[in-house]
């Protein structure tokens, strides 16, 4: 089976029913994507599959065969962070940081769909992502900042 992970084609040896999460983590050593619940309850494992945010813990790898998978490791181009990542840093969002890959992947997808979300839209889009450290106020702030960064950068 082949996957396209962060733009590169890779061969997968794991059984087809293995959740994409564990293929990424254990077979491809892409451990930025996290395990938090294993049943689509926390969002820590969020990646993009064909551009859509999905919970990789309940997605069998076979469902991703031949499709583009984007993980947190594929966001920045080298030292060039994305606007969302820069906004996260600027806002000093992370505490333990464990949930933040998932948060950033969901926020990135949200801003592609909706470049200027309201607080309520942010709450709805990110309702599936748990942060046990309670960084929610800063996540909200960072999403707004990222929206602004994207808009200004698009304007130049």
């Amino acid at each position: 089976m082949k996957l396209i992970v962060n733009g590169a084609e890779v061969d997968i040896a794991s059984d087809g029913d293995t959740p994409l999460l564990w293929v990424l983590r254990d077979e491809l050593d892409l451990v930025g994507t996290k395990y938090g619940c294993g049943m689509a309850q926390c969002g820590a494992c969020t990646v993009h599959l064909a551009g859509q945010p999905i919970r990789s813990c309940i997605t069998p790898v076979s469902a991703a065969a031949g499709k583009a998978v984007e993980t947190i490791e594929g966001q920045a181009a080298g030292a060039d962070l994305t606007a969302v990542q820069r906004a996260w840093l600027e806002t000093d969002v992370a505490q333990c940081g464990y949930c933040q890959s998932g948060q950033i992947m969901v926020a990135t997808a949200l801003l592609k769909e909706n470049p200027a979300p309201t607080d309520e839209q942010i709450d709805t889009a990110m309702a599936g992502n748990v942060c046990r450290c309670g960084t929610y106020p800063r996540i909200r702030k960072a999403v707004h900042l990222a929206a602004k960064l994207i808009a200004t950068e698009a304007a130049v």
Partner: peptide, 21 residues
């Protein structure tokens, strides 16, 4: 002051125990 290890916590490179191999 921003978090010392903040940068590693936005690009997936922060290593937690569960990540070690």
């Amino acid at each position: 002051a921003k978090r010392h290890e903040g940068a590693a916590k936005v690009d997936g490179s922060a290593q937690f125990g569960i990540d070690l191999k």
